[in-house]
């Protein structure tokens, strides 16, 4: 177990290093941040001063080594635009994105799994066919369009929910959370539904396919023949066995939801990290982009680790394989 963990960490470090190099070169190729940061009426002297102060006049390898050097000391630099440490900036924004992503994942599971189960168990019923067709819509409708539609319906026409922004927050463990207040939930609901739409469809389809696959297998028939109640068979024998692909996909989806909730965040003016990264890329705010990607990669690695551990809990075969 320990060896496996160490191997995992070494892999992660390699990924982080490679990623930092690629992103650094990529950001450098896009353009010079000085041109974007300066006021339009800045003179050439101002420009030269700024370039020198940000160290942009140094050779590329030196800039990279400087970055790596201070990163190893735990300093990811200060944002060019906001003049605050990049990590602080990201940690300020991350909770908003985290609660949005988790809310979306929870919706995906509590809506997607029952519907998928139903569609898998009774494939011939009209409702199952409706669910199946509905999930195609979830896949194919563009997020921004659905987002605007949600706003037009629930905020503008009906006036039930606010159109944008994050609600009141409560401070817990030094972090501001909005899911603990009623007002916060009212703001959270629409963007979370918007973000979860694709995932709901995914979960429905995965669950349905899994159920269809497992249903005709011998152990299910045997369990039924043994006289177990249908409900117990579904919960214990079927659901548990289709959890593995579900957990894998949800793990990956969670990562990408946190990292790339950009579209939803920008339509709902949600002050999360997706919007931050978009603004920072547009402004070529290098320290923020670098720090953000490092945080995200670390997050992905961590989620994958959790997924692997969940495998062991869910599937005895994986447990034995690892201990053997």
């Amino acid at each position: 177990m320990l060896g496996w963990l160490l191997q995992r960490v070494a892999q992660a470090l390699l990924v982080i290093f490679a990623m930092s190099l690629v992103v650094f070169l990529g950001l450098h190729a896009v353009g010079n941040p000085a041109d974007l940061l300066l006021a339009p009426d800045a003179t050439q002297i101002d420009r030269a001063e700024l370039v020198a102060r940000l160290g942009l006049d140094r050779p590329l390898w030196e800039q990279y080594l400087n970055f790596v050097g201070s990163a190893l000391r735990g300093d990811l630099g200060r944002s060019f635009v906001y003049n605050v440490p990049a990590v602080t900036l990201i940690l300020q924004r991350l909770p908003a994105t985290l609660e949005l992503a988790f809310a979306a994942m929870i919706f995906a599971v509590i809506i997607g799994v029952p519907l998928g189960l139903y569609a898998g168990l009774y494939p011939e019923r009209l409702l199952s066919k409706l669910i199946q067709t509905g999930s195609i819509l979830g896949f194919s409708l563009p997020t921004f369009w659905v987002g605007l539609l949600l706003i037009m319906t629930f905020s503008v026409s009906l006036g039930w929910l606010p159109a944008s922004g994050r609600g009141e927050t409560v401070r817990v463990f030094g972090v501001e959370w909005s899911f603990l207040t009623l007002n916060g939930w009212r703001h959270l609901l629409l963007p979370a539904i918007n973000l979860s739409l694709f995932k709901v469809s995914l979960v429905i389809r995965l669950t349905r396919a899994g159920v269809r696959e497992v249903l005709p297998l011998d152990y299910v028939r045997f369990a039924r023949a043994k006289g177990l109640r249908r409900g117990r068979v579904v919960m214990m024998h079927i659901l548990r066995n289709i959890m593995i692909p579900l957990v894998t996909v949800l793990g990956l989806e969670l990562g990408s939801t946190i990292a790339f909730a950009v579209v939803t965040e920008s339509i709902f003016a949600w002050p999360g990290s997706g919007k931050l990264i978009l603004d920072s890329i547009n402004a070529l705010d290098r320290p923020v982009v670098m720090a953000y990607l490092l945080v995200v990669v670390t997050l992905f690695v961590f989620i994958n680790l959790v997924v692997d551990i969940l495998y062991r809990v869910l599937d005895p075969r994986v447990r034995e394989e690892a201990s053997a």
């Binding site: 706003i151 606010p162 003016a269």
Partner: peptide, 11 residues
């Protein structure tokens, strides 16, 4: 678009 929606919905 989000700005317009925020005004229309009274946010």
């Amino acid at each position: 678009a989000a700005r317009t929606a925020a005004l229309l919905s009274g946010d």
